[in-house]
Design a protein around this nucleic acid. Structure first.
Lengths: 234, 234
DNA sequence: GACGACATTTTGAGTTGTCAAAACTTCAAT
DNA sequence: ATTGAAGTTTTGACAACTCAAAATGTCGTC
């Protein structure tokens, strides 16, 4: 019955990285080498740490195969994600940051903001459900809304609305902002040319924009219904 | 020419504590035992750390006598203090905290807020010169305005203005707030009774308040002129 | 000057997180 | 089966910070 110390910010980062990589391929173990890359530490370090996470009950570790989060670990990861995304939105809406510059600050503040302050921020923002990039903000209880979206690259011609942007690099975000391609913006998909490898679209109240198929894969479009889904086994 | 790593938050805290204790008795060495109390660590730990601060050029350490900040250390301490106080004001003015609850959050955030964010906060607040308790906010260059103040307990009868509050305990601050005794408030000192050990005063637009001489020692009153003083030897 | 009381320093040890480099699987391909 | 490439784990080490408890220094007093 050892008293559980609050997780360190390092642990929170491992959990977050584990969560993100797990999303890409649910119910596959995350190889530790991939984590090492994501966290910018050596593989040996990850092995050591993940064993610790496993002992602490946050992850399930299979030697030489990889790791996945336990329900406890996933809940914690989602709380960190909630912090991160609320802080990003706070920096944009209240402090006046551009959406391309929030990441680094949020990455640090997510480990420093108290629950009390997070609640105030949440209230100031009107209990938002998505961050500046359109990523869903987990609820305090560890529930995350699964958005009904599809990549722009797969979207048929016609009128649509941008829901989310997957590439958070400043350059890409600056490009999008300059053209009004932000979550919530209405657009009309004009056509896709597989040979040229481009998608052409018109922005509501803006001009025509041409992006590569690759770029179009990093822009998500809202599709009809949305539903709230609780995490499995939590 | 070893590349100087940025100071850890632990180092920042030692520097801050050193600065505060140094203020009480300038040009006296701060005994390490006192630091140990303030930082809530054992004396041995402080000895080790202060030796490190000395090696890093932040402090001057005389064995068994105590330590004081070097100009470099003092500048750093003032930057930490600047962070702390700007964050406190931000939490009160922007986020809606009460002045009695800002301390703990600021204590953590002062080590997490980037220079960029601090600049934005400073601008949002209109480059303020004092925090919610009336403490002066150091300038970015490491200059601090020396306020012209005197303890309420020494203030003659008559009309005055509250400048600063030294006791930051929530209970004391709640007491003051309920009675309107906040920095900037106008008051009239009615009298001091040495035998009873009390000071009687009336708050502008408020009622009469009686406080002990002790409490009156923790409330500072603005006196005529103020001057900006740069730190010596910086 | 010797003695205590008290503060400070030393010593030995532990925790967390990290690395470099050697040792070790695993697995596909021969 | 054997081999080699690639990924993973182990080992030994280190830096920062901390503690407990023993050793040491300082100072005022008798």
């Amino acid at each position: 019955m050892a008293e559980q110390a609050p997780p360190t910010s390092t642990v929170e980062n491992y959990l977050k990285a584990l969560y993100v990589h797990q999303q890409a391929q649910p119910d596959a173990l995350v190889p530790l080498g991939r984590l090492a890359q994501a966290l910018e530490v050596t593989p040996g370090t990850v092995t050591t740490m993940v064993k610790g996470l496993s002992e602490a009950g946050y992850a399930q570790y299979e030697s030489r195969r990889g790791a996945r989060l336990t329900p406890t670990g996933e809940k914690l990861a989602l709380q960190v994600l909630r912090r991160h995304r609320l802080i990003e939105l706070f920096l944009v809406d209240i402090v006046g940051y551009d959406w391309s510059e929030v990441h680094d600050d949020a990455e640090i503040l997510e480990h420093a903001v108290s629950d009390k302050l997070l609640d105030r921020i949440d209230a100031m923002l009107g209990h938002p459900t998505t961050d500046p990039h359109g990523d869903p903000i987990p609820k305090p209880c560890g529930t995350i809304r699964k958005q009904n979206v599809q990549p722009l690259v797969q979207t048929p011609a016609g009128r649509h609305q941008i829901a989310q942007v997957l590439d958070h690099s400043p350059r890409f975000l600056d490009f999008l902002r300059e053209r009004g391609l932000v979550p919530g913006a209405g657009i009309e998909v004009i056509g896709r040319d597989e040979v040229a490898g481009i998608v052409t679209l018109r922005v509501h109240g803006g001009g025509e924009v041409i992006v590569s198929l690759t770029a179009a894969g990093r822009i998500l479009i809202a599709t009809p219904e949305e539903a709230t889904v609780t995490d499995p086994e939590t």
